[in-house]
Amino acid sequence: MKLLTKKYLKSFSDYDDHLFVFKEEDKQSGLFAYVAIHNNNLGPATGGTRVFNYLSEKDAITDALRLSRAMTYKAALAGVGFGGGKGVIYLHKGEKKNKQMMQRYAKFINDINDTYCEYTTGEDVGLDQEDVELMTETSKFIVGSKGKAGDPSPFAALSCYYAIKESVNFLLKKKNLKGTKVAVKGVGKVGSVLVDFLVEEGCAVYISDINRNAIDDVKRKYPNVISVENYEISKLDVDIYSPCAMGGEFTNVNVNNLNCKIICGAANNQLVSPNVGNSLKEIGIWYIPDYVTNCGGLINVIDQLESSGYKKERVTKRIIKVKKTVAEILRKSLVENIPTNLIADSMAQEKIFAKHGK
């Protein structure tokens, strides 16, 4: 295990005075991984692990830095008493994860906890329930196991659904979602559950996904849902555009192609840079910060760490509070005339640094 130096990390624009960034490379298993610990002022660091075919080592580090910071802010606004961290496993071109790799990664997590600080991890893109169960055999710092918290995806969808409901209530003055036009990009584990909620509420739903099988699964269940190509979904004239696939979607240029009133989705790191929030505000599109909308996944998995054990009822009660957070962000944005992403960041920072200072 190697600890990356602050001097090296300062060359990354997404470095935000992170506490630690660890690197682990094991040739025998093929493991090439990073874990970034952003902040633990509010409690032990937590955050899932992403397994992805990154184009470069720099891209993997950048993702770990950005995602871990978002986890800190997500945990702060969710009020769960945890800090933020994130793991990424860098798969080279054509490489696939394997059992030995995941076991070795679990030992890496143990090393971090034994030597530096507490960090728990679990599912994210590319890391599934089977991987969680396998890593649990090696490490007690894995969350989201069966019989306890389980898959966080339905709960991320639930918080996103509540965020949509509150944004429509606050901005469009509608008490329910009936007739609301919603475009969902990505109908995998999170997006497909979100579609369940939306259809049940009587929304007009449009979907897209790079995986044709995912589209077919939704269409079999809901024949009236309209599927479009991935490149078309963001341009539809809808009330809500809900990105639920990979992040990095919105730039200062492509936001001008949007035809929605509100962006509210579960994908992480949707804005390429914070100033995209200004661009969205200038063209009159409301953005509900992603680390607010998808907080349900976090709330679910860390509940298994409660002294009384995992309780689904407690999880759902905590998730519904996202509606209050969304309303506060929108109200402050209106009053202060500041983009919603900057308002949310400010609210999170107040909680994170209230007792410690920066």
Rank of each mutant, 00 (worst) to 15 (best):
K6Q: 10
L9C: 04
S11C: 01
F12R: 06
D14E: 15
D16M: 11
D17E: 14
F20T: 03
E24S: 10
F32H: 15
V35R: 15
V35T: 11
A36F: 07
A36I: 06
K58D: 08
T62R: 14
L65S: 02
L67G: 06
L67P: 03
S68H: 07
Y73L: 15
A75M: 09
L77R: 07
L77D: 07
A78C: 03
G79P: 14
K86S: 03
K86P: 07
I89D: 11
I89L: 03
G94H: 00
Q100T: 08
M101E: 05
A106C: 11
D111N: 11
D114W: 01
Y116T: 10
E118K: 15
Y119Q: 09
T120E: 07
T121V: 10
E123K: 12
V132Q: 12
M135A: 00
T136W: 15
G150M: 05
A156D: 04
Y161D: 01
K165R: 12
E166V: 07
L171P: 06
L172R: 09
N176C: 06
L177M: 05
T180W: 06
G186L: 04
V187A: 11
S192D: 01
V193G: 09
E201K: 10
A204F: 08
V205E: 11
Y206V: 02
S208M: 01
D209I: 07
A214R: 05
A214H: 08
R220K: 14
K221A: 13
Y222P: 03
P223V: 02
I226G: 05
E229P: 08
E232A: 10
L236D: 05
M246V: 14
M246H: 13
M246F: 13
C264F: 04
A266Q: 00
A267Y: 09
A267W: 04
N269E: 08
Q270A: 03
V272C: 10
S273N: 00
N275C: 02
V276S: 12
Y287C: 05
V292P: 04
V292F: 03
T293L: 07
C295V: 01
G297C: 06
Q304V: 05
Q304D: 06
L305N: 00
G309D: 00
K312Y: 05
E313H: 08
T316G: 03
K321E: 08
V322E: 05
K323T: 04
V326G: 11
K332A: 13
T340V: 11
N341I: 05
M347W: 12
Q349N: 15
K351Q: 09
I352F: 01
I352Y: 01
I352Q: 04
K355P: 08
